[in-house]
Design a protein around this nucleic acid. Structure first.
Lengths: 146, 146
DNA sequence: TCAAGATTGATGCAGGTGCATATATGGTTG
DNA sequence: CAACCATATATGCACCTGCATCAATCTTGA
């Protein structure tokens, strides 16, 4: 049970040693860079990355502080906002990928054949279903269907 | 990569909902309960659990605070100490096991056949090797073999 | 034997995370 | 359209973690 966490941790360490921010930053920047127009709603990002709402809020804080993304108002829904990746953000994402990919190769790729990696991935997929994040909404009593 | 962490997290949540402390407490109590005389050195525990030294130091703090273990002086090596599990500790470990095992069944066992679980375990084992914890000791230049 | 270095364990501090809750806006229903 | 509930995001607080470092005690080599 502890192995995957440690492997992921090793990858994070490699990134840190290379002077890069945590993997969560990469994930967010990657999602944003793929979004049409380079922007999306925090809620979307949360769902993609499967992290809790407050965690996303703070991640965005940090990205914005570092000039990697910016918050724009959302005209469709005034409760929300759009997060938009900046050029600096796109650039960092690309530079991180080189360190990230070599870390993956070092800690995973070099230890598993492609076939084994596929088997592992398949087995883990079966574990993953129905393992939801608390979603942070009290989500009242689901008993009554209205 | 994120699936195993989330599964482990689900198990932790189940334990918490049942009013139990974190899994790390269980692991430590289990190791201690198996030690001859119910006691061992923190350094040993660290190696077993693969957690950093300061983390173990604080885990012991908490176990002792809760009366689950106690620190005894180590006559062989006055730098160190012995951690000894108490009756309350043994009792908690046993009670946690029932919640723990059913959580494992719910989040893992029910999703994988025994054969698949064995396959998964085998694949993960291959990833695990050489993925060491920083061991917290500056561990000078390993270059010179003396 | 003694100084230099290694090992054991603890801890102050900065930063991250979860929980609960706040604020603002949207949606629905009677 | 008013009262209510839902959704989107932010934040105060307590706790946990990692890092760096400390003090005390071994160990070793000259």
């Amino acid at each position: 049970m502890r192995v995957p966490g440690r492997v992921l941790n090793c990858v994070e360490q490699d990134l840190k040693k290379a002077g890069f921010p945590p993997l969560a930053w990469y994930d967010a920047l990657l999602e944003l860079s793929r979004a049409p127009g380079g922007g999306m709603r925090p809620v979307e990002l949360e769902k993609q990355m499967l992290i809790p709402q407050y965690s996303m809020s703070r991640l965005i804080d940090r990205l914005v502080e570092e000039g990697l993304a910016l918050r724009r108002e959302c005209k469709m829904d005034k409760r929300g906002l759009y997060v938009e990746i900046t050029e600096a953000g796109r650039d960092l994402q690309k530079r991180m990928w080189s360190a990230y990919s070599s870390a993956i190769e070092r800690h995973v790729g070099s230890k598993l054949s492609d076939a084994d990696a596929a088997r592992l991935s398949g087995l883990l997929d079966r574990l993953g279903c129905s393992c939801e994040q608390p979603s942070m909404t009290p989500s009242r009593d689901v008993a009554s269907v209205r």
